Amino acid sequence: MLDLHHIFTMQKKALFFLLALCALGWGFTSIPAVFAGIAVGACFGTYNFWILVRRMDKFDRSISEGKKTVSLGSALRFGSGIAAVAIAITLPQYFHLISTVIGLMIPYGFLFIGVLVASVRNK
């Protein structure tokens, strides 16, 4: 099974490719707000996944040292999602709300696809 750092590295590469596609869509289509919303949502979603990776490291260290476990940062990730949606609601002429929410879920889709690919390769 892949560790979280390897998955996060793969997600960063996929995010840069997605952002390039969003930049092209933003510049050359008639629906730039949709592509801008996807880009903002994907950035905040990747930030949420980075927080999760960092907190899982702290969690693993505290378990191995026998210390009391710490929170996994759910409130911080939830607040980040609210911030992304607040940006889309505040600036609807630049960011599409639904595409921002979809963009927030893209890193988890990348995670699912990465796990599927890794399990197919290991068979």
Rank of each mutant, 00 (worst) to 15 (best):
P32F: 02
P32W: 03
P32Q: 04
V34C: 10
F35T: 00
G37H: 01
I38P: 12
I38K: 06
A39G: 13
A39C: 14
A39V: 12
V40Q: 09
V40H: 06
V40K: 06
G41M: 08
C43S: 11
C43Q: 06
C43D: 03
F44D: 04
G45F: 05
T46P: 02
T46S: 15
N48C: 10
W50L: 10
W50I: 02
I51P: 08
I51K: 10
I51Q: 10
L52T: 05
L52E: 04
V53C: 08
R54S: 14
R54A: 14
R55D: 05
R55P: 02
R55M: 08
D57Y: 05
K58V: 10
F59L: 11
F59N: 03
D60C: 14
D60A: 15
R61L: 13
R61I: 03
R61P: 05
S62P: 00
S62I: 03
S62C: 12
S62N: 06
S62L: 15
I63F: 11
I63N: 07
I63Q: 13
S64E: 15
E65I: 05
E65D: 10
E65A: 14
G66R: 07
G66Y: 07
G66D: 12
K67M: 11
K67F: 05
K68P: 00
K68F: 03
K68Q: 12
T69A: 15
T69E: 13
V70Q: 05
V70G: 12
S71D: 09
S71V: 12
S71F: 13
L72F: 05
G73W: 03
G73Y: 03
G73K: 09
L76D: 10
R77V: 07
R77H: 00
F78W: 10
G81L: 08
G81T: 09
G81R: 02
I82V: 14
I82E: 02
A83I: 06
A83Y: 02
A84R: 01
V85I: 12
V85C: 07
V85D: 04
A86L: 14
A86F: 08
I87W: 02
A88G: 00
A88N: 00
I89M: 09
T90E: 04
T90N: 07
L91K: 01
L91M: 02
P92A: 03
P92N: 07
Q93M: 04
Q93T: 08
Q93H: 11
H96M: 02
H96Q: 12
L97G: 00
L97N: 00
I98T: 13
I98N: 06
T100V: 01
T100E: 00
V101K: 03
V101Y: 02
I102V: 14
G103N: 06
G103V: 10
L104W: 05
M105Q: 10
I106Y: 08
I106C: 10
P107I: 09
Y108G: 03
Y108Q: 07
G109M: 11
G109S: 09
F110Y: 07
F110R: 01
L111Q: 09
L111E: 06
F112C: 06
I113Q: 01
I113T: 02
I113A: 10
V115R: 05
V120F: 15
N122R: 15
N122M: 11
